[in-house]
Write a protein that binds this DNA or RNA. Structure first.
Lengths: 96, 96
DNA sequence: ATTATATATTCCAACTATGGCATATATAAT
DNA sequence: ATTATATATGCCATAGTTGGAATATATAAT
């Protein structure tokens, strides 16, 4: 496998390597949300949420859609669910 | 879900958010390897490989076993394969 | 005991991420 | 045109990551 591909994958994991961004992914797993809804749900400043969303988008994990003043974000990747389920099982087993 | 769990998951993703460590995971996916074998395969200094292995171990992704002078590392997590396959498909589709 | 080998640790400079605050932009409403 | 609202951008101090070079530790062989 070429190095560039490891770089790309690392970028995806980097985007997911932050609790705020993981929480956003969890929110979006329940369906499309505008930035304002995400800000309401999470205890962070709006600019920080915006930056987090942009990072997830750049990694190709989410996509956005504009409607009037609002920007709606939603998941673009389908395999998060399985992987998270697996991680959850591991945590339940108390291996970490 | 409590915040602590997001922290823990973020730690796992952080461990995977580096091309060298991903390459190590790939090597270990083909079976247990000692540090020296990993050093032979990857173009990095031994101390750096050691540190990478320790980081993966602390995240609960790999385990180690000592035998004489050698330390053998192997995967401890079973769901990497599926997730990597999914990521590969996404890359093949050229979405990133 | 000395030496060789495999792995881990420490130190460090360059780089990158984090998250708040202030501000800019874009659209909508009056 | 002015004002209000939603989102994005820039700046910044602090903290964490990266990967090399030198060194330490642990086990094995002579």
């Amino acid at each position: 496998m070429n190095n560039n591909l490891y770089e790309k994958k690392a970028q995806i994991f980097k985007a997911l390597s932050n609790p705020v961004r993981l929480e956003i992914m969890d929110l979006l797993a329940n369906g499309e949300k505008c930035v304002c809804e995400i800000v309401e749900n999470l205890n962070y400043e709006q600019p920080h949420i915006s930056k987090s969303l942009i990072k997830l988008k750049e990694a190709g994990l989410i996509k956005d859609r504009k409607d009037g003043l609002n920007v709606y974000y939603s998941l673009k990747i389908c395999c998060m669910g399985e992987f998270f389920n697996c991680l959850n099982k591991i945590f339940e087993q108390g291996n970490n």
